[in-house]
């Protein structure tokens, strides 16, 4: 464990509630070629919490999640600078496979299932890692308990399913790798409100089971309702951060749209 290397590592100042952070992100910037999408992002993720990231379209929310799971390490077309520390282990230079092996995974924007694979095959791809293979049959049953609909349709090709069902497969697939942290990018995109309610109930259950969650959610009220901590992004920078019970909606709204009040309180 390298105490000297990470600024907010092991013996550094404790995070929120005196606990030791699970993830510490420092001076994180992200670039698509010449275009800079994130500016010196700093925040911590506490174990067991639900962190909501909100911000307008193009604010850099997806880029932030992609940076954490190593999907911005693409040479000339995309890269990051700064550090991402997980309990003393540095993630920012690792390949996505290694980061997932370390226990961080993502449910990507738009679900991105493997369209020609069945429900069960999609779920099983999530258990590809050597450390997951043995437990795969039990995990599969857990997923089917959580989403009985998927159990009924296990042999169906996923691109014939409804959006809500596909989102369940995407969540289940991420859980198959037995993660400590799951990043959810716009779970509610294109889904009916009642289905979104169901999905967030499941996210709550996943969190109750001890999984730390980072959610990107367009619906600000919902984001504030489901989270223990919120981060507001504006044009690639964090402009407001805090406990949703202590922040008021006006404050968050102005940060979201970038009015002066929002900047002042950041």
């Amino acid at each position: 464990m390298s105490i000297s290397v990470s600024k907010r590592g092991f013996f550094a100042e404790p995070g929120r509630g005196g606990k030791r952070p699970l993830l510490t992100i420092s001076e994180l910037s992200a670039y698509y070629g010449q275009l800079r999408a994130l500016y010196d992002i700093e925040f911590q993720v506490m174990p067991g919490e639900v962190l909501a990231v909100i911000g307008a379209n193009g604010a850099g929310k997806s880029t932030l999640l992609k940076s954490i799971v190593g999907m911005m390490n693409r040479g000339k077309t995309a890269h990051i600078t700064g550090t991402i520390d997980m309990r003393g282990r540095r993630l920012e230079r690792l390949n996505t496979e290694k980061i997932v092996d370390a226990g961080v995974t993502m449910v990507p924007e738009g679900r991105r299932l493997f369209p020609r694979l069945t429900v069960e095959e999609n779920l099983m791809t999530g258990a590809y890692l050597a450390r997951c293979r043995g437990k795969a049959p039990e995990k599969l049953e857990e997923i089917y308990d959580m989403f009985p609909r998927l159990g009924e349709r296990r042999a169906q090709i996923v691109n014939q399913m409804s959006g809500g069902e596909q989102q369940m497969v995407a969540i289940g697939r991420a859980l198959m790798s037995d993660p400590q942290v799951v990043l959810f990018d716009e779970l509610s995109l294109g889904l009916a409100p009642s289905i979104v309610d169901d999905i967030y109930v499941k996210v709550g259950q996943i969190n109750q089971a001890g999984v730390t969650c980072i959610v990107i959610e367009q619906d600000m009220k919902r984001a504030l309702a489901v989270s223990n901590h919120v981060l507001v992004l504006l044009e690639g920078a964090v402009v407001l951060e805090g406990d949703p019970r202590e922040l008021d909606v006006d404050q968050v709204t102005s940060a979201y749209f970038g009015s002066d009040i929002g900047r002042a309180s950041a």
Binding site: M71, N95, T96, D101, T105, M106, P108, R112, F114, Y128
Partner: peptide
């Protein structure tokens, strides 16, 4: 291709090479 982890990984990478690393697939 249908019954093994490696075989499914080949099919997954063929469907979406950008996302398959999220499954731990190299």
């Amino acid at each position: 291709l249908n019954r093994t982890h490696a075989g499914r990984a080949i099919r997954a990478a063929s469907d979406d090479a950008e996302i398959s690393p999220l499954m731990g697939i190299n």
